Computed example of a mutant assay.
Amino acid sequence: MKMENILIEKLDNIAIITINRPEKLNALNKATILDLHEGFKSLDDDKSIKVIIITGSGEKAFVAGADISEFAHFSEEDGGKLAAKGQELLFDFVQNLSTPVIAAVNGFALGGGLELAMACHFRVASDNARMGLPEVTLGVIPGYGGTQRLSQLVGKGRAMEMIMTAGMIDAQTALNYGLVNHVVPQAELLDLAKGIAAKITKNSSTAISKAIQAINANFEDGVNGYEVEIKNFGASFGTEDFKEGTTAFLEKRKADFK
C-alpha cells in the first residue's frame, strides 16, 4: 500500500507510521488524515502486528498543526463537518483501535498534532518536544477532541489555562502534567518506544484489546466502565490466550501467545 503522506515500516510484530510532510512540518490536511486512517486500519487488520508507533519525519515536528489553508474560508456548517469527519476517520478511530498505539512525539505537537498524540493510547516525547493547542489565536477552538482529551489527561484547570492562553509547554512540563509517560533525548526516542512496544508484544493481544475497551469506557458518557470491565473480564475466559496464559503460569514457563 503506497500513500503520499505517510511511511509504514514493519519490524517483526511492531509497525512504525511516520507522517512524512517535513516541508509542512507534518501538518495534517485531508489527504494525510485519510492516509493515516487507511494506514491504521490496514495495520489493525494485520494480525502479525501487535503494536503501532506513530511519529513525525525530520527533527522539528511530530505534527505542527492542521493545514489552515484548507479551511480558512469554511462556513459554520463546513467547520462542523470538518471536525465530525476528522474525529470519525482518525482521532476517535485511533483511540478505539484494538491494537495499542504509542505516539513518539519528536518535536512540535500543536493543534491537531497534539490532538492526534492524545488520541493514541499513550505518549513518549523527545526533550525538544513542545506541545500546545493554539486554536484560539485563530478565532476557533480545538475541534479534533482536544478540549475533551486534554482535560482528561492533565485536569480541567491546566487544560483551561493551556487552551485559553494558547501557550506551549515543554517536554518536562508535559511529563510533570502526565501528558507524556517518558522524556528522552531525541536520538533515543524511537528506541524507547520500540523497547516499550517489545514488552507489550509479549503479552496477550486479545486481553490488551479488551483492556483498551474497558479503559476507554470510563470516559464515555452514559457508559459504565465497571460493567464493561466485568463483561470483558468474563469474555477473556473464553479465549485461547487465557488457556495458554494460565497453563503457562501453572507449568512455570513463559506464555506463547499466538
Rank of each mutant, 00 (worst) to 15 (best):
V51L: 11
D44G: 12
S69G: 10
L34T: 09
K10N: 10
N20H: 15
D45C: 14
L97H: 04
L25Y: 04
L43H: 09
V105S: 06
G86V: 10
D46H: 04
E76F: 15
I16R: 07
L28C: 08
R21L: 13
I68F: 00
A31N: 10
N26Q: 11
L82F: 13
A72W: 04
D92W: 00
E23K: 13
K50I: 05
D67I: 00
G65A: 03
Q95I: 05
G107F: 03
I17V: 08
T99P: 12
L34G: 09
I68E: 03
A27W: 04
I33R: 10
K41Q: 07
H37E: 06
V101S: 03
T18D: 07
I33F: 07
A84T: 08
F93K: 14
L89K: 14
N13W: 05
S75W: 01
F91N: 06
S42L: 05
F93A: 08
L11F: 15
G58T: 04
L25S: 05
E23G: 05
S57I: 14
I17R: 13
G65R: 06
K85I: 13
D45G: 10
E23F: 07
G86F: 11
L36A: 08
A64T: 08
H37Q: 12
I54D: 09
L28S: 00
N26I: 04
S48T: 06
H73Q: 15
A27M: 09
A64Q: 06
L97N: 11
D92Q: 06
D44I: 03
F71H: 14
H37V: 00
A83W: 12
V51R: 09
I14A: 12
V105F: 07
K50W: 03
P22Y: 00
I68M: 04
F93H: 13
